[in-house]
Design a protein around this nucleic acid. Structure first.
Length: 541
RNA sequence: GCCCCCGUAGCUCAGCUGGAUAGAGCGCCGGCCUUCUAAGCCGGAUGUCGCAGGUUCGAAUCCUGCCGGGGGUGCCA
């Protein structure tokens, strides 16, 4: 981020920062520059003077006076005036020249450009990873929407991203799964802790027609999981999520990665044997108790396999491992972080993002979802009900850290009132204007564009200029829901502009052309915002 | 017991690495289509930011303690 940046807001911030640093004699000062909350407070305001009050030992407003003079000198003619307000804010009022240039800066890329982060990382994002013993649920859909949007945000800010689904195709739950299919093939009820959903009947039917032997549980397990993964992949693709990889737990054993991982931890001195089991001393790294890697029966625990999987992620060159986990796995975080520290300390950052629960509400009651009982609303059913766009918006608009109630009745009956339509409508409206503009014969393309003059027009420009900062903040905070809020604000700013400013046929030199360009930038910004969320931007509604 | 999430308008929630008069949607009341899409816009009402202390020039935001709701806490996955 420098004064040479093509981002007009970055340039403003650079000027403010330079002035503040010179006055403080301290290069570490990082003042904030924010859009002003109200028009009478100018276009942007900075808290720089207040930040300097303590180190300089002077009153904030006094500093602000000097700083304002310095900022005026830095910015020259693009600044109309700088006012000191409140406890020491400096409010910047920008002139036509700045606005004209700012509007033009968005023309090339279709929106304000998102600069890559200073130090891009190679990141692997693991999400969903639901057991392949049943179809994806609506809750998995929340994970899918979040993980996908987060990956897109991190990619948009310049990082190298891999997305991955860990397939738990080993272990007892798969045995239960196979036993359940076999039971149905034999016309029996699944075992007590088996899977009772109707999809199991369908799998049994298919197994029978393809000549499977219900007694061959191993083959049944492998095939059943294969079919399930196939279905899961399809559900995800239908939902607009394409995983880079599906990583098989079983392959860890086949490739001998589990033994190797445990051996390495043993060499590092963090493994011990007790009561016939093999343990990892995670308490040395902040966990509240030590964890078993290999049971006394000789079986590797889920944790043991998962550690080996994470080791593999690091060995593939990833610098940061992000796991998107359900709230019911939060107890798992400390031990995995401990394991990563024990094994590969400092080599890669392990980061867990914990998703809070989603409750489906139907008929005013919360639906209990149990995969084993087969009492679930699947992701496929959800998207059929309310559509992919509405589902993704619904699942993403709240912080992933927040428990949400998804009211199915509401989502169905009021789908036209879903906020996603508000944003999509703005986009469709713009496309309509642009179609109209294309029909009408525009002015001379060589004419200079008018500077945005109307308050709604200027407000829209500055809202669009905030796009890069919003994307960076959403990425850094792992908070795609901020993009939902931002997209809504862009749509609102556009609707206000639409109300106040005629586009096609606007009077004045270069006004129509400037407004068409602004419409294009708005459409581009909405399209990109929705794109980060995996939501379409329709041209007509 | 210990750990995690939450408590902000009637409802659902943003805002939380401290900043100006705390916001949005829904709902409620009242307006706006012979100009580019009324799935829109404008106006109005509604708040002890759970409670109590503390830090600070400044706290919804940071710290401590409490209260209330939800979830977790296995040689399950």
């Amino acid at each position: 981020m420098s004064a040479n940046s093509s981002d007009p807001v970055e340039r403003l911030l650079a000027a403010v920062t330079a002035a503040a640093r010179q006055m403080a004699g301290d290069q570490s000062v990082t003042p904030a520059l924010d859009p002003s909350p109200r028009p009478e407070m100018g276009d942007y305001s900075t808290n720089a003077a207040m930040m300097l009050a303590k180190p300089l030992g002077r009153a904030p407003r006094e500093i602000a006076a000097d700083l304002a003079t310095a900022i005026e000198a830095e910015l020259g003619s693009s600044l109309e005036k700088a006012e000191i307000a409140g406890p020491g804010f400096i409010n910047l009022f920008l002139g036509d020249a700045w606005y004209r240039e700012a509007a033009a800066s968005m023309a090339a890329g279709g929106s304000a450009a998102v600069a890559p982060v200073g130090e891009p990382e190679r990141i692997i994002v693991e999400f969903v990873s639901a057991n392949p013993t049943g179809p994806l649920t609506a809750a998995s859909g929340r994970h899918a929407a979040y993980g996908d949007a987060l990956s897109k945000l991190l990619r948009a800010t310049g990082n190298d991203i891999t997305t991955e689904y860990y397939v738990n195709d080993g272990g007892t739950q798969v045995e239960n799964f196979a036993a359940s299919i076999a039971a149905r093939m034999n016309g029996e009820e699944p075992p007590e802790d088996g899977y009772k959903g109707t999809y199991v009947n369908e799998l049994a039917e298919r197994a029978r027609s393809e000549g499977h032997d219900p007694a061959d549980l191993e083959r049944l397990a492998r095939t059943g999981v294969e079919w399930m993964v196939e279905g899961i992949r399809g559900s995800l693709e239908n939902f607009g999520v394409s995983m880079d990889d599906f990583f098989s737990e079983r392959s860890l054993y086949e490739d001998n990665l589990v033994d190797r991982g445990i051996e390495r931890m043993r060499e590092a001195g963090h493994v011990f044997d007790e009561e016939g089991a093999v343990w990892l001393r995670t308490t040395d790294f902040g966990d509240d108790k030590d964890r078993v890697l290999i049971r006394s029966s000789g079986e590797v625990t889920y944790f043991g396999a998962d550690v080996a999987y994470h080791v593999d992620k690091i060995e593939r060159g990833n610098e940061r491992l992000i796991d998107v986990l359900g709230a019911d796995h939060h107890g798992y975080v400390a031990r995995m972080a401990a394991a990563m520290e024990a094994l590969e300390g400092g080599k890669a950052e392990f980061e867990a993002q914990i998703m809070q629960l989603i409750h489906l509400v139907e008929g005013g009651e919360r639906t209990k979802m149990s995969k084993r009982a087969g009492d679930i609303v699947t992701l496929d059913e959800l998207t059929q009900d309310i559509g992919v766009d509405a589902a993704r918006w619904f699942l993403l608009q709240r912080s992933h850290n927040q428990t949400i109630d998804l009211d199915l009745d509401l989502a169905r009956s009021q789908s036209s009132e879903n906020p996603v339509y508000y944003v999509q409508y703005a986009h469709a409206r713009i496309q309509s204007i642009l179609r109209k503009a294309a029909e009408a014969d525009g002015g001379d393309p060589g004419d200079p564009l008018a500077a945005p003059a109307d308050p709604s027009e200027k407000a829209l420009v500055s809202k669009l200029l905030a796009f890069p900062a919003e994307v960076h903040e959403a990425a850094e905070k792992r908070a795609p829901h901020r993009i939902c809020a931002y997209a809504s604000e862009v749509a609102a700013a556009f609707h206000a502009f639409y109300r106040d400013c005629l586009v096609v046929g606007a009077e004045g030199d270069g006004v129509e052309a400037a407004r068409i360009q602004l419409c294009e930038a708005t459409a581009g910004t909405i399209r990109q915002s929705l794109g980060l969320l995996g939501i379409t931007a329709p041209d007509r509604m």
